[in-house]
Amino acid sequence: MRRRDFLRTAAVFVSGASVSLSALEFLDPGKVLAAHPQLRWAFLVDTHKCVGCGFCVKACKIENDIPLDANVTRTWVERYVIKKNGETVMDCPKGALDGYTSKLLDQGKSGKVLVPDKEVAQAFFVPKLCNHCELPACVQVCPVGATYQTADGAVLVDRQWCIGCGYCIMGCPYGVRFFHPVERVADKCTFCYHRISKGGNTACAQACPFGARRIGNLRDPDDPVAKTVLNQRVGVLRDEYGTKPHVFYLGLNKEVR
């Protein structure tokens, strides 16, 4: 065979083969799994059970190396006191790290206020954490892709890549993000991804003495959290932002922000 003929035949073969091969799709197992994930982490908060002890906050800070004395936290517990005249007073001193042991409500610069018992119509606690949204605003606005969403729904931060611009902190409608005082990058609740991905429980759920916090898999029909979300009347926070949050609340009041 002459060299010219060989080259011509080879060219025809390669172009013909590439056209027909392009019809085939090379499947990446990871992508297939991501399209139909077996796992979608979700969190269930039963506000009826929360007593505002703050164990979850402390456990979270210790587990995830957030300095205890720093005024930022991955999870916190809010206190709501609704008066008989309809007025609502709320507070969350230090994210409830030390628990609610006083009836005085911390109003920041406006000082502390006491609502007399006889004026109280109802009072309750609401634990908060990252909602690991399906359409997270923080992931959308990160200019370098340092904040990302895993296939199983968790929203995480790459500490090696975050530039610390704070756009994600501004973009989050739930105020769950902050700058880590030591690492100097954006930080947030990970659902204790390092624990749950190995079959463990989140630090906050484990520390809760009353079972007010539970992590679960929405894709598993036998999962107790999935069952509750499906069968009971649960609410989510601020759905008007279209982020599709995945922390579900039992007993959510309209007063809860």
Binding site: N71, W76, C92, K94, Q107, G108, G175, R177
Partner: peptide, 10 residues
């Protein structure tokens, strides 16, 4: 400086 009800990370 925070006044009234502000979230802990704000």
């Amino acid at each position: 400086i925070k006044d009234l009800f502000v979230l802990p990370n704000e």
